[in-house]
Each structure stands twice: as structure tokens, then as C-alpha cells.
Design a protein around this nucleic acid. Structure first.
Length: 267
DNA sequence: ACGCTGATGTACT
DNA sequence: GTACATCAGCGTT
């Protein structure tokens, strides 16, 4: 409860040193460009500064495992109310397959008010509260009740604002400044760093004005991927062992490295 | 490096 | 009541 209020306050605050990623023109500002289908053409070529290409709904319309891999190397962009852009490259994901997946909230076909967005169209965000104080962000994929959890980002822009959001939202001690590595290396850390809360649940990543996905650079578009067991799945039986976590090999921003899995997944 | 623990609120046996 | 798709801080190898 206090979390949401604190988050709103944190978003108001502005780091005076963190101006590099603000848009140069004044508010009110239009949202990010929207693609229709796979068209991206002239609109994006006109502004050299805007080398962005928002990924459209067709990108998300693939099975969870496929989407989990495809998301690696793509850039998640969050625009705050004041126009500040926070950017991070996705380096770690997990796939949740739907009704048959004992570790998924949609196991057994359960559909509740909480997990409704898991069943909505591909590209819909599923954001839920965990342990009473944190959020996790998922992207719905093709397949009923299937989605992909975002577990870690390499922060690319707006790091000082991220640091501020992370510190403000952490409780208690006004402690040390967080290292860059600590900003987005975990599913709830990245939600704090990007000011993602429950209000993002059921939003469309292909259409929303405050959050979207862009193509990563060429080199990061075909990364070496490690396949490993998912994290934090206690009582999901055999499903806890299945290799449904994906991360970029050797990437220092990954939250948990699985050396055993890396042996099996030789590059 | 690893292991323990408290924080904290919602969903759903 | 109990279980959480977690995190940070502190203690011990």
C-alpha cells in the first residue's frame, strides 16, 4: 500500500544530473511511435535521433519459449510522466507455459482476477504483487495462460533515475548507493528501477505510451543463450527442473548464473 | 562464496 | 491459515 504512494512520489523526484535521456522538446509530448503490423518505414527514418522501432503486436504472437528467447537482446523502454526515458536491454527471461505448467499461475487452467492478463492477447503485461512488497512483470505470449517473466536487464539509460527509484522504494535504511549491477538484476529489482507497479497490469506492450519494446542492436540480436531451470520454483515438482529460463551467456547483468546448465549448453 | 531471516500483503487451500 | 515466480542485510565458510 505504501509502496504505490512511494512510487508515485519517487516518480515526481528528478535527479538533476540525469538529464541525458530526456526528450529535447517540451511537453506535452506525444507518446512513442506506434507500429501497425510489421510496417515501420518512413516514419522511423525521418528522425536520425529516433532510431527506435517499436516492436508491434506480431512480435509477441509466438509461443512462450520462442518469445522468451526472442526477447533477449531487445530493449525495454519506460517513459516516466515527466518524459524521462529509462532503457534496459533484456538479458534474462523465463517462460511459463500455461495450464500444463505446474509452476505457472495459470496451472490447471486457473483463471482469476489476478492472472487474467495471462490469458489476454500476446503482448499484454501481467504484473503481480509478490511477497507483499514486490512486483514481477511478465509479457503474455501465444498460448492460453502462457507468458514470459522478465528477470534481468542491462541498464542502458536513465541509470541515476533508476538508482533513485530503487533506493526510494527500498525500505528502511538510507543505505549505500546501489551499484549499476544491482539496479535491474532480478524480476522485482527491474520493476522498481523502471517504476512498474500493478497499474501496468493488462497494458499492451505494443500500444502503451509509457512502456514499449525496441529492437536491440545488431550484435545483441543473436546472442548465445544459456538454457537453465527457473528460479524460485519450490513446489512445482518436475516442472521446477525444466529448462525454461533463458539468459545471455557471459552477460554480467544476469541475476543468477547456472554453471551446470552452461556446461550442457555449450556455445 | 553460501545460508539464514525478516519484511509485508494478497490470493486462494 | 499458508504459500508465495523476492530482496537486502547480516552472519558464517
Amino acid at each position: 500500500m505504501g509502496q504505490k504512494k512511494k512510487l508515485a512520489e519517487a516518480e515526481q523526484q528528478q535527479s538533476p544530473t540525469d538529464t541525458a535521456h530526456k526528450p529535447s522538446f517540451k511537453k506535452p509530448r506525444l507518446g512513442p511511435p506506434l507500429t501497425l503490423g510489421s510496417q515501420r518505414s518512413i516514419y522511423f527514418c525521418q528522425s536520425p535521433k529516433d532510431h527506435s522501432a517499436r516492436l508491434g503486436s506480431e512480435f509477441f504472437d509466438q509461443p512462450a519459449v520462442s518469445l522468451a528467447r526472442a526477447l533477449l537482446g531487445q530493449v525495454l523502454v519506460r517513459q516516466l510522466g515527466d518524459g524521462t526515458e529509462l532503457r534496459g536491454c533484456i538479458v534474462e527471461t523465463e517462460a511459463y507455459l500455461g495450464p500444463e505448467d505446474e509452476a505457472a499461475h495459470s496451472r490447471g487452467g486457473r483463471q482469476t482476477p489476478r492472472n487474467r492478463s495471462m490469458f489476454m492477447k500476446p503482448g499484454t503485461l501481467y504484473v503481480y504483487l509478490i511477497y507483499g512488497m514486490y512486483f514481477c512483470m511478465n509479457v503474455s505470449s501465444q498460448g492460453d495462460g502462457a507468458c514470459v517473466l522478465l528477470r534481468a536487464l542491462e541498464p542502458l539509460g536513465g541509470l541515476e533515475t533508476m538508482r533513485q527509484l530503487r533506493s526510494t522504494l527500498r525500505k528502511g535504511t538510507i543505505s549505500r548507493a546501489l551499484k549499476d549491477r544491482e539496479l535491474c538484476s532480478g524480476p522485482s529489482k527491474l520493476c522498481q528501477a523502471l517504476a512498474i507497479d500493478k497499474s501496468f497490469d493488462q497494458r499492451d506492450l505494443a500500444q502503451d505510451e509509457a512502456i514499449w519494446l525496441e529492437h536491440g542492436s545488431l550484435e545483441s540480436s543473436a546472442p548465445a543463450v544459456v538454457t537453465a531451470a527457473r528460479i524460485g520454483i519450490g513446489r512445482a515438482g518436475e516442472w521446477a527442473q525444466k529448462p525454461l529460463r533463458f539468459y545471455i551467456r557471459g552477460n554480467p547483468w544476469v541475476s543468477v548464473v547456472d554453471k551446470g546448465a552452461e556446461q550442457n549448453t555449450q556455445a
